[in-house]
């Protein structure tokens, strides 16, 4: 028996089915470059997994050695600074692209029937991305990251009804310490990646099952054929996008490499404390409100995000063609952007 025949017998995959699977019809608007950015968070996630796997070979998840091990990665190991810089920058690009992707879906209203559930999976992916950022940042165990972890766990603790249980679960005890770091590590390198892979799978499956929504532009010519094949046409566009994004990512890592902050001191909060940029709006909100609303506000916001496809349907029913969803989106985005810049310039 020839090797090819043996392989085909042992691995009976239907080639024709594969060709059919990869020839998904793609709507014409995705020929425009700007619309081919949806895969960016996925590429960044793959970069995170690869660089994360390299980093975890040297990272030591204990309170005495965590900072030292990251310092060693950054300052001593060959290309350690580059791998860590790419890990950090790809996390930032991933979060930014998830936010932009969500805004695009929101303003083009592609969350509408029958894509409500996929929007909800998307919101969960957005939250997972933020928790990824939070848990990864906590692992560094430098001053800013330690206090970000402290504030983050206290916020969890202030959640109505289940706060005490949640804080104790995250901290693994009464206060931040070794158990907290262990938990952050397990979440960051094990639980979150598995959850992320499962959810990305569901998200992409539903995109395939429901089809990419077809958008038309006013200046677009009416053409007979509204779609084009995924393979090889769209795949080539995506590859060019990957190359471009990788170029930007490496340029950022080279021009703005990561550095080490001060080692964590559980007794002294830095006088100028800021979280990572994606938590700026929440951080500002916490300064403006009491603890109850400080915690409840973001929860209500997330609740509205989850239920938005149904809230939108309700608005459309009571005030059809008034573009309420659009204006609520504009006002919401302006408030969040306002809080973001306020936190940048304010104390």
């Amino acid at each position: 028996m020839g090797l090819a025949k043996w392989f085909k017998t042992s691995f009976p995959v239907d080639n024709e089915a594969l060709v059919e699977m990869s020839s998904e019809p793609i709507p014409n608007h995705l020929k425009k470059w700007w619309w081919a950015l949806g895969g960016t968070p996925l590429y960044m996630f793959i970069v995170q997994v690869i660089t994360g796997l390299l980093l975890v070979f040297y990272y030591e998840p204990n309170v005495e050695e965590a900072y030292n091990s990251i310092s060693r990665i950054t300052n001593e190991l060959p290309y350690g600074w580059l791998i860590r810089s790419i890990h950090k920058w790809s996390a930032n690009i991933m979060i930014a692209s998830v936010i932009l992707h969500m805004m695009r879906v929101f303003f083009t209203q592609t969350y509408r029937k029958p894509r409500e559930l996929n929007w909800m999976f998307g919101v969960t992916l957005f939250l997972l991305t933020l928790i990824f950022g939070f848990s990864g940042y906590s692992l560094i165990y430098e001053q800013m990251s330690y206090w970000a972890m402290k504030v983050g766990t206290e916020i969890a603790g202030a959640t109505p009804f289940i706060g005490d249980w949640m804080a104790s679960f995250i901290k693994g005890g009464e206060d931040i310490g070794q158990h907290t770091l262990t938990r952050m590590h397990i979440f960051h390198v094990m639980i979150l990646p598995l959850a992320m892979v499962a959810l990305i799978g569901l998200h992409v499956y539903l995109i395939r099952a429901l089809g990419v929504s077809d958008l038309r532009f006013k200046d677009e010519e009416r053409v007979e054929k509204k779609t084009f094949p995924f393979w090889p046409d769209h795949a080539t566009t995506e590859l060019v996008m990957v190359a471009l994004i990788m170029f930007v990512l490496i340029a950022l890592a080279l021009l703005f490499p990561v550095h080490m902050g001060e080692r964590a001191n559980p007794n002294v909060t830095p006088i100028h404390i800021k979280p990572e940029w994606y938590f700026y709006p929440v951080f500002r909100w916490l300064k403006l409100t009491n603890l109850f609303w400080g915690v409840l506000g973001p929860m209500i916001f997330i609740g509205i995000l989850y239920l938005w496809p149904f809230i939108d349907r309700f608005f459309e029913k009571i005030a059809p063609k008034k573009d309420l969803a659009f204006w609520i989106g504009v006002i919401g985005s302006l408030i969040l952007t306002g809080f973001f810049f306020w936190e940048i310039v304010g104390h």
């Binding site: 206090w147 402290k150 504030v151 766990t153 206290e154 916020i155 202030a158 007794n267 002294v268 909060t269 830095p270 006088i271 100028h272 404390i273 951080f283 916490l286 300064k287 603890l291 104390h347």
Partner: peptide, 22 residues
């Protein structure tokens, strides 16, 4: 007592100040 940061004693202003959320 807000979110667990350490407060600073500011002698000149005769007050404790929390740098996290003012």
């Amino acid at each position: 007592t807000h979110l667990g940061c350490t407060v600073y004693w500011q002698q000149d202003k005769n007050r404790f100040y929390c740098p996290c959320h003012q």
